[in-house]
Design a protein around this nucleic acid. Structure first.
Lengths: 229, 229
DNA sequence: ACCTGAACACCGTTCAAGT
DNA sequence: ACCTGAACACCGTTCAAGT
């Protein structure tokens, strides 16, 4: 699932581990952390999963990394910059998961398309705090945050490509693929957001079955042979 | 638009105005505020519109109302309770706006349905901070917040009713109206959220035209006569 | 080059005390 | 009944100083 590689790391003694990783002569004492930037992102992810965004203070992440409250400012301009880095990794993980799901779904384009949407929804439901952060106002979009925006638009490009392929195969009706991508993203994102924030609840029903009940109507609208709009 | 009635209020001298408004003997000095609860909600709305949720601290709202930082705790258990009250009013305003739009749209059920969706999207885009607050994690859903949840589910009930009417009129295909309501809400909410958070941008295109390009495909899927799913 | 310690201006919340 | 003042434990951020 392209999760960040932080799983079994020991909780204490987070100083002095992990060799520099860059070429060049090994630093003598290599006092201090080693890779505080990486440790801050991993720590933020752990706090997000355990306590949600409410517990995610810069000072708490620094504490967990074993450094002073001021140390993170060597690596991030401010708190927003740390959150942007976390969100960017989230978009990369989401894009990778969608790509994997498409590949695993086989040749049927409709099946692939559905699998990609369900992967998006599952990502959101399984990591609610991270999903909210990725799409929330804490992260400045567009404003000099190119790496972040790039990761986000890759996700969109995946969608457009899938629709165009479906049109060429005669499975999806003609029409502007951007409009259809926008419709798909909106429905899948809306379903995710409403589930994550508790406005919709699926009870004991499986997530995939529940979500498919709604997605079905969009697929009918996309299908070639439906009456013209 | 069922906006809160706070428009031209003077900025200073916010004490001692507004008579109690409840029956009973007029209080003698009626020292202090009069209706601090109301003033807190109005102040929160103004800060939300001007600075977004980042500027919305309990102390700032108290300052604006001309009371001490501790005074609000007479009227709200904590900050979350104030935010819940603001969100609840937001849901009521949204529901009322959708109802008005449906009434103004005339008899054609499809036109009505579209008008309701576009009203939702316009509400979100015109009051982004308020929209985010209404649907965000700051407000506890379901956890002993009945008045809030009631306002939210009224909005959903409006949708289901519209779909059932469309089915009876033979305009909408047979099927579980709850599923279709879920699909509609998801698409409209997703479009709103992605616009509000800046992931989708409509450039210079009018909001209604832009949103309709996506909504179109859902309507095709709903329409009676479309190939069965 | 990377980090610490102390400081500043903010928070949310509590609690005794005032009218 | 409703509000104030002072306090506590937190924040984000800055800045001189240390190694």
């Amino acid at each position: 699932m392209t999760q960040v590689k932080t799983a079994g790391a020991p909780r204490a003694a987070s100083r002095t581990r992990r060799p520099a990783g860059k070429a060049g002569p090994p630093r003598r004492g290599r006092y201090h952390h080693g890779d505080l930037r990486r440790a801050m992102i991993d720590g933020a992810l752990r706090i997000l999963a355990a306590e949600g965004v409410a517990g995610l203070s810069l000072r708490a992440v620094a504490r967990r990394a074993g450094v002073s409250q001021a140390a993170p400012y060597r690596h991030f301009a401010d708190k927003a910059a740390l959150l942007a880095a976390v969100a960017e990794e989230g978009f990369r993980a989401l894009t990778a998961a969608m790509r994997d799901a498409a590949a695993a779904a086989g040749d049927d384009l409709i099946v692939r398309f559905r699998a990609v949407g369900l992967t998006y929804i599952r990502f959101a439901v399984d990591r609610p705090a991270r999903f909210r952060l990725m799409f929330g106002r804490e992260v400045a979009h567009g404003a000099g945050n190119e790496r972040f925006d790039q990761a986000a638009s890759e996700t969109f490009a995946l969608l457009v490509t899938g629709i165009e392929r479906g049109q060429r195969a005669g499975l999806i009706r003609p029409g502007n693929p951007m409009d259809m991508a926008m419709a798909s993203w909106s429905m899948v994102h809306g379903l995710s957001a409403l589930l994550v924030d508790g406005q919709l609840s699926r009870g004991t029903e499986g997530l995939e079955a529940y979500a498919s009940r709604a997605l079905r109507y969009l697929f009918i609208g996309f299908r070639d042979g439906a009456p013209a709009g």
